[in-house]
Design a protein around this nucleic acid. Structure first.
Lengths: 163, 163
DNA sequence: CGCTAATAGTTGTAGCGTCAAGTGTTTGCT
DNA sequence: AGCAAACACTTGACGCTACAACTATTAGCG
């Protein structure tokens, strides 16, 4: 038990930078969305997932998986979005335990209005400073880390194939 | 105004993976530290910064910069750490507006005890799945993003030189 | 000097996330 | 069929963070 593994100097340097990004990036996304669209990043992400779903509808459990949230968290957030008229709930016909979350027209408008500003912010903050090769490296590296953090590929789809 | 910039397919894929890591990594760090040492990641980081400082002492403002926190947040956290006997406050002699935060012996023991488990978790989660080349790429890419997020290099020191 | 502005920090409040507990529904087993 | 376990949420309470307001001290400047 005495041989404790530690990080090499190079690894420590890379780690510190990653952790700095992990701490700073949410704030950067948050403040732009809050300022321009009065949405938290998680709210935006929730609306975005719904906007891409068939009929703009998803079961709570499925939406929770897509957004990497607990059901409890999602339930609170949907309650708030519902009060703002961006989402509505509907009991699921096939399974009466389940609830569908549905994007309202107002919710759709909100997401559509928010998307360009958010995309611009993402571009300016993380994409523009990178070369195409960097982007490819980033994709590969984050993919490897996700194999550990999310082996079931709940958050991000597995490597896309042509079929 | 009509030409809204958007992300390419490759960029979008890399971005989604990065955001997934940003969402999942804090939880992974948090639960290990909470389980093994009853510390949040931010508390651990605060203690770690103090442990590396001369005399294990830092002014609140300086500690806030090192941990990328607002003064208000840090003040609350230090209050809690103080109640647990891990840190103590002392008015600063040179500037009577300022407060020094000082790591107590108990705080030092706590951080020393927590470090190996935390390092092991970092290794297992992000370093082990990467090759040495990946680590170098990660360092370079996060460095470029940090130029935007933290141009003043408050969180991470600028590229080290030999002088 | 003396006054204002800036700095350093603390505290209270409101909002969001987590955890534990609870409801209603469905599945699976016998 | 009947009953227990699993599932799909919802709700309430508590802890942590951001924001705003406030105190105390120091620096700048005429």
């Amino acid at each position: 038990m005495t041989d404790v593994r530690w990080l090499s100097e190079d690894q420590l340097r890379a780690w510190k930078k990653l952790i700095a990004v992990v701490e700073l990036l949410p704030g950067a996304l948050e403040s732009q969305l809050q300022r321009d669209s009065s949405l938290s990043h998680f709210e935006y992400f929730t609306l975005a997932m719904l906007s891409e779903a068939p009929d703009r509808t998803l079961r709570m459990t499925s939406l929770a998986a897509h957004t990497n949230a607990t059901l409890a968290r999602l339930s609170h957030v949907v309650t708030r979005l519902e009060k703002r008229g961006l989402v509505r709930r509907e009991p699921c016909a096939e399974d009466r335990r389940a609830t569908n979350a549905i994007l309202t027209p107002a919710g759709w408008s909100t997401v559509v209005a928010a998307a360009p500003g958010h995309a611009g912010n993402v571009l300016a903050t993380v994409i523009d400073p990178l070369t195409d090769a960097d982007v490819a490296d980033l994709d590969r590296i984050m993919g490897r880390i996700l194999e550990v953090l999310d082996p079931a590929h709940v958050m991000v789809d597995a490597v896309p194939t042509d079929d």
